[in-house]
Write a protein that binds this DNA or RNA. Sequence first.
DNA 1: AGAGGCTTGTGACCCACCTCACAGGTCACC
DNA 2: GGTGACCTGTGAGGTGGGTCACAAGCCTCT
Lengths: 244, 244
Amino acid sequence: MNAHADDHATRQVFDKRAILQQHPLFGALGSSLIDQLSSHATSKRIKRGTTIFSKGDYGSCLYAVCSGQVKITVPSGEGKDAVFNLIGPGQIFGEIALLDGGQRTADAVAARDSELLIIDRRDFIPLVQREPEIAIKLIEILCARLRNTSEQVEDVIFLDLPARLAKTLLRLAGTDARNHKVLITQSELGQIIGVSREATNRQLRDWEKHRWVKLESGGVVLLQPDALAALLETTRPPRGHTGK
Amino acid sequence: MNAHADDHATRQVFDKRAILQQHPLFGALGSSLIDQLSSHATSKRIKRGTTIFSKGDYGSCLYAVCSGQVKITVPSGEGKDAVFNLIGPGQIFGEIALLDGGQRTADAVAARDSELLIIDRRDFIPLVQREPEIAIKLIEILCARLRNTSEQVEDVIFLDLPARLAKTLLRLAGTDARNHKVLITQSELGQIIGVSREATNRQLRDWEKHRWVKLESGGVVLLQPDALAALLETTRPPRGHTGK
DNA sequence: AGAGGCTTGTGACCCACCTCACAGGTCACC
DNA sequence: GGTGACCTGTGAGGTGGGTCACAAGCCTCT
């Protein structure tokens, strides 16, 4: 919004060291290492809509979100982006290309005005090599990512629109908002679950009739999260064999 | 098959050290470490169809395939398994649960009679902590997996049946078989691309009419891989309009 | 205050793929 | 040599969700 408040606002409003230290990846480091890292890290404010990197780029920086939100999307041939992930404050993104030096696997775009911390491969890799702790943490993070992504594949193969939508709303409500209100547009929801905006709208309206949700411009209020959660449980086998 | 040939066949037909050493994950290790690891590793022969572990299990071993093939699948409610991955000789699986101690994210089943090397978390984790080289290699492997899985999500969202099928056949032909013959049943193909067996069959028959493939019982011969590859290059207009 | 842009809401049409149903082929094993 | 079990092949019918088209509400910027 205040795009003209730059010269002043570009100054650090946050402490790089504090940001790094609070992140699970760096929390374990001694403060001398933190100092060293944060002296290399640069910070940046970007406006909503700014592209941070694009799929196929070779840039090799690690990003940490200090404030705002970053959208990880992947473009199909024709304007049909799919949203893979939403990165909020305290989370990192761009690890893969950083770590293996390959191409970026997706686009990263600021979903809101955001502040980022940027660490270059040059500064980071040596640290990983020297500090087993860091490597272990990285492995944990990658494992978590892998679990996420695998689940995404499962969902998109096995779950239909209502189930995917319900799951996504519950997830977003959990991490994203207080009080079960999710701030997101319907077309973004569609992009997250891999479905058209229209279909998303129709499902939401259906639920609104049932008083499960309430729609507002740019947001969805979950009135009965339990009802949505119940939708996900129906995937039990009709035949009653739970064991192997 | 030869379930009675056990006492004899259970003896090592392969050299554990050699197997480990040839794997990218361990190749860099000094031979003393290899010795140490291989002394902990146990080997096992299993028959086609044997379940190695199931989704949700807490077992924490790393597996390396010495011979045969292992299918990584994930079950939906009702018999509708999806095949996530096929693991061949020289590849490993089960890393995630090994590394983070969590539940297995999928089932692992022997697709053929196979020989496996098994390494326990207890023996492996200390090694990771002591040897940064190993940690780095692990990170590379996880990154590769992540790239794979992300691509799977993309494919299942953006690509239609013919494209996914073509892509899968080409991939399997590349790694799996000599001479462009892919040994796999049509229902397994369907499970890999997340589509019904019938639909898979119809698409294959269509291609057979065009002489792009030849169908045999339990296999597909790619007569014109280029034609299939060309399918993937089109920008994906479902109808016949290419530009916007 | 109006204009342009983004969002929501909805009807009509269509087609890719699913499900069911059934038939013939091949192989293994009794 | 028959009897399953698994594979391939194909038709008929149903439907989820995509695409297109259009209208109305709401912000923001000028």
